[in-house]
Simulated assay, not measured.
Amino acid sequence: MSFHDASVAAYLQMLNSLTGILTKAEAHCKAKNIQPDVLLGARLYPDMLSFTRQVQLVCDFATKGCARLTHSEVPTIPDTEKSFDELKARLAKTIDYVKSFKPAQFEGADSRDVTFPAGPDKTMTLKGQQFLSHYSLPNFYFHAATAHDILRHNGVEIGKRDFLGVS
Rank of each mutant, 00 (worst) to 15 (best):
M1C: 06
M1A: 13
S2V: 05
F3L: 14
D5E: 12
A10W: 02
L15K: 05
N16F: 10
S17A: 11
L18G: 13
T19W: 12
T23W: 03
T23M: 09
T23H: 07
H28G: 05
C29T: 00
C29K: 00
C29L: 06
K32S: 15
N33Y: 00
P36R: 00
D37V: 05
D37G: 07
L39V: 01
L40H: 03
R43H: 07
Y45D: 10
D47Q: 15
M48L: 09
S50D: 13
S50Y: 11
F51C: 07
R53W: 12
Q54I: 00
Q56G: 00
Q56H: 13
V58Y: 11
C59S: 15
F61W: 15
K64N: 05
K64E: 02
C66Y: 03
R68A: 07
T70F: 13
T70M: 12
S72Y: 08
E73F: 15
V74M: 12
P75W: 11
T76K: 06
I77V: 14
P78I: 06
D79L: 10
D79F: 12
T80P: 09
T80A: 14
E81D: 04
S83W: 09
F84S: 01
K88T: 02
L91R: 01
L91K: 03
A92T: 15
K93E: 15
D96L: 12
F101R: 00
F101Y: 14
F101A: 01
K102T: 11
A104V: 07
F106W: 05
E107T: 08
G108R: 03
G108W: 12
A109E: 08
A109C: 14
D110R: 10
D113E: 11
D113A: 14
V114H: 08
V114G: 04
T115I: 02
T115G: 02
F116C: 10
A118T: 00
G119D: 00
P120R: 07
P120I: 07
T123Q: 11
F131V: 05
F131P: 09
L137F: 13
F140Q: 01
F142M: 11
A145R: 04
T146R: 04
H148V: 01
I150S: 06
L151C: 11
L151M: 12
H153L: 11
H153C: 10
N154C: 06
G155F: 10
G155A: 01
E157L: 14
I158F: 13
R161D: 11
R161Y: 14
F163G: 01
L164I: 04
G165F: 07
V166R: 04
V166E: 03
